[in-house]
């Protein structure tokens, strides 16, 4: 059974490119474009990896991450934060909140695929 990756990204073209790349790797991709209700979706879907944009409508990636880490079953869920906000303070805040990996945009496709494999253990 293929592993599943849940992407929360409000930019539709980036979402399309990421989804294509991950599906091409044989992964099951679930996509959301809004931060609202995201934690509930994750709880029901139980993905193997979450890719989170930091700036999202209604609920930021940081808030979603903090909410996830507060739930017992998701305290160790791999979360890759992907953001254009690459300042030191943003990275520090994400690490403080328990992110598994912090990547800044723009990214190289090969790099994100390599990191997804690593976080999924494949």
């Amino acid at each position: 059974m293929s592993k599943s990756v849940l992407i929360v990204e409000d930019e539709p073209f980036i979402l399309e490119a990421l989804s294509f790349l991950l599906k091409r790797e044989g992964l099951n991709v679930i996509a959301f474009t809004d931060g609202d209700g995201c934690v509930e979706h994750i709880q029901s879907i139980k993905p193997d990896l979450v890719i989170l944009d930091m700036m999202l409508p209604n609920r930021s990636g940081m808030q979603i991450l903090e909410d996830l880490r507060a739930i017992d079953n998701f305290s160790n869920l791999p979360v890759l934060m992907l953001t254009a906000k690459g300042q030191k303070k943003d990275r520090a805040a994400a690490e403080q909140a328990g992110v598994s990996l912090f990547m800044t945009k723009p990214f190289a496709n090969k790099e994100i695929i390599r990191n997804v494999h690593r976080l999924l253990g494949i």
Partner: peptide
Amino acid sequence: MHLMLTNITTIKSTAEILSD
């Protein structure tokens, strides 16, 4: 700046898909 980085991310990632 956020918007431009987003634009560049799409262009870079999409161009890589089309040329890899």
